[in-house]
């Protein structure tokens, strides 16, 4: 049997992920996490001096704090097995990636272990965010300078 024939055989006997079911679960959990975020935003707007726009920063910080608790108590990975992208895409998923790496590498010490590995998983998000922001801003600046568009 060659590799191609085997792959056909293997795929015919392997269960396929139910994409519709996965999407529904991602929608539900992702939506709930964002709703919690919205409630926290309301809280910061009502009790502190934040506006709709500025409440975003403390909200994100609070969500990451919650992600730390869920990660530390071993609940985030259970949620993620159910939710998939529903728990990975919100900023809590970014927090979970950072915090789980930090906890995992504690055994190699705080400098080389925690410090060196904290962005092991989440680093690519920062790198690609920054590079893409740089390119987008540069292109837009160029277009504005030559007068194709404006800010």
């Amino acid at each position: 049997m060659d590799a191609k024939q085997y792959d056909t055989l293997q795929q015919s006997l392997s269960p396929k992920p139910s994409i519709i079911k996965n999407c529904l679960k991602a929608f539900l959990v992702g939506g709930i996490i964002c709703t919690i975020g919205q409630l926290i935003t309301f809280f910061y707007m009502a009790y502190f001096n934040f506006t709709e726009r500025t409440a975003g920063n403390p909200t994100v910080a609070t969500m990451i704090f919650l992600a730390m608790l869920f990660t530390g108590f071993g609940l985030y990975k259970k949620l993620a097995q159910f939710a998939g992208a529903g728990s990975a895409v919100p900023v809590t998923g970014f927090g979970n990636a950072v915090i789980s790496s930090a906890i995992e590498h504690k055994s190699e010490g705080y400098v080389l272990g925690v410090g060196g590995n904290i962005f092991k998983l989440a680093g690519s998000v920062i790198v690609f965010g920054v590079v893409s922001a740089f390119v987008v801003a540069l292109v837009k600046l160029l277009l504005v300078t030559v007068g194709v568009t404006n800010w």
């Binding site: 539900l28 964002c34 895409v89 998923g93």
Partner: peptide
């Protein structure tokens, strides 16, 4: 709820249809 949920669905589709890791998706 709806908009946040939909963005997560886009992520799930990238992961499942594109067979990509969470790191790639994010």
């Amino acid at each position: 709820f709806i908009v946040g949920g939909l963005i997560c669905v886009v992520g799930q589709l990238i992961m499942d249809l594109g067979k990509l890791t969470p790191a790639h998706t994010l």
